[in-house]
């Protein structure tokens, strides 16, 4: 066998390996979705969406869990978006490259890797006990905001970094102040990337169970929250609760609730992709 042949074989086999790697994740996802749809799709109907929790699987619904999830989602977005984007802008545009700045940077990167249960314990001590918020939607949202802040900050910085410095320099050369440059040039150019980061982070947040259980999200809540101070439950907790019940009907319910949760996540990701494309196309220099 010549050297060229050998190389071709290696080349080919790596290509195959790459394809296998690519499809591995997809295949698992496909199997998961197939199993869940087979088990749960028939269970999803309007009653399932609007019923309250119940001991009878046929009567149980996910209304309060969906409402809780939406509440947490909205509050978490409102809290984390301005803080994280503000921090991202500061670190990328204003902060001098001092030791303090690099220390901040390292810490934020590390925070992104902290297990979510730790954030739950932090939230329990600070928001639930010291701030006296109790097991409320607000306490849960603040905790999840902490959890996703580092993710959004990192995404924001990446998006800001991607804006060509020639644009910023040109803006400055025209006499614009730093803030005018950021507001009129840098942010609009990077908003697609920033929003993608935000929505992906939020998608992660809606799947979180552990920190919310610690903070005090409950298993049985027969009413939708009507203010940020109300008790709440969210979909992953409802799913977890159902999966661990002995009656088969509940595992069907769990599968159906997983479909709904997946749909919400897919829709969120869809929105992210849509806005990214829309805003990226508009930027023309």
């Amino acid at each position: 066998m010549t050297n060229a042949q050998k190389n071709r074989i290696i080349d080919k086999s790596f290509q195959v390996f790459g394809i296998v790697c690519t499809f591995f994740g997809l295949a698992i996802l496909a199997i998961l979705i197939y199993n869940i749809v087979i088990e749960g799709a028939a269970r999803i109907d309007w009653d399932f969406m609007k019923n309250l929790p119940s001991r009878r699987p046929q009567k149980a619904g996910i209304f309060t869990a969906v409402m809780g999830t939406i509440w947490v989602l909205v509050l978490t977005t409102l809290i984390s978006f301005p803080i994280a984007v503000g921090a991202g802008i500061y670190l990328e545009e204003y902060a001098k490259k001092t030791k303090l700045a690099s220390l901040l940077e390292i810490n934020i990167a590390n925070l992104a890797g902290v297990p979510s249960i730790i954030y739950g314990l932090l939230g329990l001590e600070i928001f639930v006990r010291i701030f006296g918020l109790g097991g409320s939607v607000l306490a849960g949202s603040l905790t999840l905001s902490l959890l996703i802040l580092p993710i959004i900050i990192v995404a924001t910085r990446e998006a800001l970094k991607a804006v060509p410095s020639s644009i910023k320099d040109a803006s400055m050369a025209m006499g614009a102040s730093k803030w005018q440059t950021i507001w009129n040039q840098t942010l609009p150019a990077s908003i697609g990337g920033v929003l993608t980061g935000v929505i992906l982070a939020i998608s992660r947040a809606i799947g979180e169970t552990a920190p919310l259980i610690v903070v005090g999200a409950l298993a049985y809540v027969p009413f939708a929250p009507s203010s940020p101070m109300d008790e709440f439950t969210v979909m992953p907790i409802q799913i977890f609760n159902w999966v661990s019940r002995p009656q088969h009907g509940f595992s069907v319910n769990a599968a159906a609730a997983i479909i709904v949760l997946l749909l919400i996540t897919f829709i969120m990701n869809g929105i992210a992709v849509y806005f990214r494309n829309k805003w990226q196309k508009k930027i023309k220099w």
């Binding site: 309250l52 929790p53 119940s54 001991r55 097991g135 005090g216 999200a217 409950l218 298993a219 049985y220 809540v221 027969p222 009413f223 008790e231 609760n241 019940r245």
Partner: peptide, 24 residues
């Protein structure tokens, strides 16, 4: 939990204004 949940569910029928929540 399953017992308390079931009772809370039935209690809703006779006292719908009372907000009973159950955690695990």
């Amino acid at each position: 939990y399953p017992i308390t949940e079931a009772i809370a569910e039935e209690f809703r029928e006779i006292a719908p204004e009372v907000k009973v929540t159950v955690g695990v």
